[in-house]
Each structure stands twice: as C-alpha cells, then as structure tokens.
C-alpha cells in the first residue's frame, strides 16, 4: 500500500470518529435540553414532585450536563449503558440478547441483497426495454416506494393469513437456539429486502446501462471478445464501484429499517426495543440503542469509502501526484 492511499484511509477513519462523537453529543444534548422531562414522563403526569426529584437524583440527572455526558460515554465504552428508567435493570442486560437477533436479521438481509441486486440489475440492463427488464424493473418501482410496515403487513396477510405457511409473528424464544427458529426470520428478511433490493437494483441497472453504452465497451466488443468475458471482466468491475455507495446507504437503511420491521413482526430486537423505549421515554435505553445503530451506520459508511478507495486503480497506483 502506498502513502497517499494510507493517508486518505486514515483521514476517513479519523473523520468517522469525529462524526460519531458529534452525533453522540447531538443525541445526548437533544435528550437533555429539549422540552419534556424523562423522569416525569416515566412516573406519569400526576406523580409526586418529590418522587420525580428522587428519581432524577437516583439516575444522576441532577448533575451538570457535561459531567453526565462524560460519565455516560465512559460507561458506554465499557458496555455499561446505565439502567433502564422504568425497570431499573441494566440497559445492556435487556438489549444484549436482542442485539443478536437484530444482527442475524440484518446480516442475512445484506448477504442476500448484494448478489441478488447485481444479478437482477445487470440482467435488466442487458435486456433493456425487453421482457426480462420489465419483469425486474416494474416491481422495483413499486417496492421502492413502500414503507416496511406495508410490505410486512402484505406478507403477513399473504403467507400467514391466507397460505398459512409461516407464523404471523416472529416471537424469538431466547432459551432455544436460533438455528431452530430460522423460519421466524423469513418474513422479516423478505420485508427488509423488499425496500432495499429495489433501490440497489435500480442503481445497478442505471450504472450498468451507462457502462454498457460506454465507448470502451464497444471497443472491447469490436476486438472480438466473447460476451461472457466482456460482462465479467469489463462491465462488472466498472459497475461495482459506483454502486458501493448505494449499497452502503441501503445497508445503513437496514439498520434503521429494523425498527419498523421488528415492530411489525414483534421480533425482539434492538429496533423494536428502541420504539418501545421511545414510547416509554426510557432515555438510557434510547441513548444506548441510538449509539449502537449510529455507530453501525458510520462503520458501514467507513467500510464503503475504504472499499471505493481500494478499488480505484488511480489511487492504488498513485505515485504521490493528484
């Protein structure tokens, strides 16, 4: 690896940490200074003021904000996200097992998303305006505009209510191994794929169309190179890089999309935990989950930027010039 590339990568990594820090400050400040008192919200509007005060003290909410922030971030770095307000249990204890479920859900979706979108997008581009293209493109223009809960609801009605192939809810049992409950993940994964796949396929198709009509592709063809070789060695490599960002964006969207999807299927993950915590105004839990999801989001973006840099021959061979 050469120096300019290393520098660029390091800059990106530093920037990612700066962003993460900025986000944690913004989120923390938002939960501290925006109108609305979490302690009062937790105890209800009619609660005794002294009880509210006691709760505030118990959770350290009477200390200065800067102190609170640093003690929070210190704990977060060691996995201690404080205690959940309504239950008083440590936050991590409640969300730890759920995080595993969410991981399984999102990673499975992502692993299906990438190869599927390339195959479908490139096929649609090659057969532009023909039947195969319509069969791929028309559904994408529909699903790209659908919220997760609509797709999820439709899937439940179809597969659980009418066909009765799969259960309408995905109540994962913590005490059983996940592998024995894999069928519970099918509909949630399909739901997440529904929205993200459409976007990535459309992007791949658009990029592939551009590449296919590029002059160098004609030149390669006119050298008598076989279509399969043209596709794998010339079209595909030039389609991947511009698409990475869209894939990253959608991978990140998966991180947010789990909130709704998990609620639809009542799947116990950190997404549904977040929406419950928001409704209960359980700030320590909201902060913890937000930090985890945002960190994932920033990490995914970082990985995609690094990939784009690494795949670019211009930077790979750069000899120090711009």
């Amino acid at each position: 690896m050469n120096k300019p590339l290393l520098q660029l990568l390091l800059t990106r990594i530093v920037l990612a940490f700066v962003t993460l820090f900025a986000v944690s400050v913004v989120v923390f400040t938002a939960t501290q200074y925006l109108p609305g008192d979490p302690a009062r919200a937790a105890l209800g509007a009619k609660a005794d003021p002294s009880a509210v005060e006691a709760l505030r003290r118990e959770f350290g909410m009477d200390r200065p904000a800067v102190v609170q922030y640093f003690s929070w971030i210190e704990g977060a770095l060691t996995g201690d996200f404080g205690r959940s307000i309504p239950s008083g249990r440590p936050v991590w204890e409640a969300i730890g097992p759920r995080a595993v479920n969410t991981m399984v859900l999102t990673v499975t979706s992502l692993l299906l998303l990438i190869p599927l979108s390339f195959v479908l997008g490139i096929v649609a581009a090659i057969y532009k305006d023909r039947l195969a293209d319509h069969l791929i493109s028309v559904p994408t223009i529909v699903t790209v505009a659908l919220p997760e809960f609509v797709i999820g609801t439709v899937l439940i009605v179809l597969f659980a209510v009418y066909l009765r192939w799969l259960p309408p809810v995905s109540l994962i049992n913590d005490s059983l191994p996940l592998s024995s409950q894999s069928s519970l993940f099918i509909l949630p994964v399909l739901t997440l794929l529904g929205t993200t796949l459409a976007q990535v396929v459309r992007m791949v198709r658009a990029v592939a169309l551009e590449v296919l009509s590029a002059e160098y592709i004609y030149m390669v063809r006119l050298r008598g190179i076989s279509p399969a070789r043209v596709l794998i060695w010339h079209v595909l490599p030039n389609t991947i890089t511009p698409t990475i960002q869209t894939i990253a964006l959608n991978a990140a969207w998966l991180a947010g999309g789990v909130v709704v999807t998990e609620s639809v299927f009542q799947l116990p993950g950190i997404g549904s935990a977040l929406s419950d915590a928001v409704i209960n105004r359980d700030m320590p839990t909201v902060l913890a989950i937000t930090l985890i999801i945002t960190a994932t989001y920033v990490l995914i973006n970082l990985v995609s930027e690094a990939l784009i840099l690494l795949l670019n021959p211009r930077l790979r061979v750069a000899s120090g010039k711009n």
Binding site: V27, A30, G36, A41, T290
Partner: peptide
C-alpha cells in the same frame, strides 16, 4: 426522528 420524538414527546 425517534430520538427527537423521544425527547420532546
């Protein structure tokens, strides 16, 4: 949006 709504109601 969730964080915003969580803190302001």
């Amino acid at each position: 949006l969730l964080v915003l709504l969580a803190s302001t109601g």
